[in-house]
Amino acid sequence: MKILVADDDLLMLRTLEFRLKKDGHTVFTTRDGREALSQIEKIAPDLIITDLMMPFTSGMEIIGSVRQMPGRRIPVIILSAMGQENVVLEAFQLGADDYITKPFSPNELSVRVRRFMV
């Protein structure tokens, strides 16, 4: 599965990349939201994992843009330290498919990603 991971924390990005590659996925990474959007158009990922707070374009804006794109529906997992009910609800209303709150377990993420494998 082609997965795009967007997070401004480099170490977190490397951790996710390492785990997902270990699970056999092809992983693309980016540290800002604007670049994430251009990557989505270029690589057409099967899944997007994104943080909420990122430079230039936030995770919420990424979900909004992805949901407006024509063609197949790309699942989006939000990975964020913001666990407040209203933020989670807003993400789901915008079209997020899953929401993982930091601190999280990489093993749990791995299981949640597997749910999107068809």
Binding site: L11, M12, K102, P103, S105, E108
Partner: peptide, 15 residues
Amino acid sequence: NELVVTSKNLAGVAG
């Protein structure tokens, strides 16, 4: 410092 920052994001066995 790096361990502290990373620990804030990770739970379970990784943490």
